[in-house]
């Protein structure tokens, strides 16, 4: 029996129309998604443009001296960012110095030492803590940590280092409780869960065969960590730390509560200071005068540039790791 294909012209036309309209709808949808991703870039460009435009008056008035001057006087309208920049950099680097080794220690604990049934719960707890908003750390720092620190550890440290040449200057002055050191402590506690979570994830990208091979050669756990896992995941660990540094640099609330908001640079870490974000948060809604507002926006611009550089480096390092991990898996 021969099968003869009959083409119903009406159905064919319908199908052709459906294909055509489907194509048009697809093109439209493609356009919408493309527009949205261009929108993301537009937001980024808008942030930069608005910061640059907003800080123009201050850039014109102070020029480069804005970043080298410590002056901050709303009455005479003399503004300089040095004290804020100094505070931002010191608090972030101190926080990193405390949080990175401890964070890596936690990651080693979670990947190698922790009894298996506890690994997931502790890991989840750390991830949950990484999501707690910074204002919580700020309020805790102000009401709980600072008074306790002032009453116990701070006088002890001042006493302890009183006769040691360099440390004597770093840990000098009356115990205020709040100050640059306290802000760094709070900051380091805040970024700790973040560093631990990222580092643990990076450690988990190390192929088990590498570790097993090292164990089979008779390496101790520490040797496996130090000579196999860390070298393999070095870029990722550094990238994760840079990501955390980016957070610490831009962190506002945890710092603003406890740094003391004093526009000067003191050698002592126990003295009150300020940071870029703390200055903006504290003074912005009360700032009057175009030059004052513009100076605060220029501070924001400086902060954005610093964090941009740090985050960009972090992206590149983590991106490189992703490629390599992909290569190993394949």
């Amino acid at each position: 029996m021969a099968y003869t294909a009959t083409i119903d012209p009406e159905a064919a036309g319908k199908r052709a129309r459906a294909v055509k309209s489907g194509g048009a709808k697809d093109a439209r949808f493609h356009g919408v998604t493309l527009l949205a991703s261009v929108g993301v870039v537009a937001i980024f460009a808008g942030v930069i443009a608005s910061l640059v435009m907003g800080s123009m008056p201050a850039i014109k008035a102070f020029g480069f001296s804005f970043v080298t001057s410590q002056a901050w006087n709303p009455v005479t309208e003399k503004f300089g960012a040095l004290a804020s920049i100094y505070g931002t950099l010191t608090t972030s680097f101190l926080a990193m110095a405390m949080a990175v080794p401890i964070g890596i220690g936690i990651a080693i604990f979670l990947t190698e030492i922790c009894p298996r049934p506890l690994r997931r719960p502790i890991g989840i707890a750390i991830e949950l803590l990484a999501g707690i908003p910074s204002i919580i750390f700020g309020i805790w720092g102000l009401f709980v940590f600072a008074p306790a620190f002032q009453a116990t550890l701070q006088p002890f440290l001042i006493e302890l280092f009183a006769n040691i040449p360099v440390l004597q200057a770093l840990f000098a002055g009356p115990p205020y409780g709040i100050g640059v050191f306290t802000a760094s402590m709070i900051l380091s506690i805040m970024i700790l869960p973040f560093i631990s979570a990222v580092t643990r994830d990076v450690f988990n990208t190390v192929p088990p065969t590498l570790k097993e091979a090292a164990y089979a050669m008779g390496c101790t756990t520490w040797e496996v960590m130090w000579r196999v896992v860390l070298p393999f995941s070095r870029t990722g660990v550094v990238g994760g730390a840079m990501l955390a540094l980016g957070r610490a640099l831009g962190e506002t609330m945890a710092v603003t509560f406890v740094i003391g908001n004093a526009h000067h640079i003191k050698t002592s870490l126990f003295a009150p200071g300020t940071s870029i974000s703390a200055t903006i948060a504290n003074e912005f809604s009360e700032a009057v005068g175009d030059l004052y507002i513009s100076s605060l926006i220029e501070l924001g611009l400086i902060l954005f540039v610093i964090t941009f550089v740090v985050l960009a480096i972090a992206q590149l390092m983590l991106g490189a790791l992703e490629k390599r991990a992909g290569g190993v898996a394949a």
Binding site: I43, G250, I280, F284, I297, L303, F308, L311
Partner: peptide
Amino acid sequence: ILLSAPSIVIGLF
């Protein structure tokens, strides 16, 4: 970058 940019800068924007 936007994901980890300081939120205070977003506020300024």
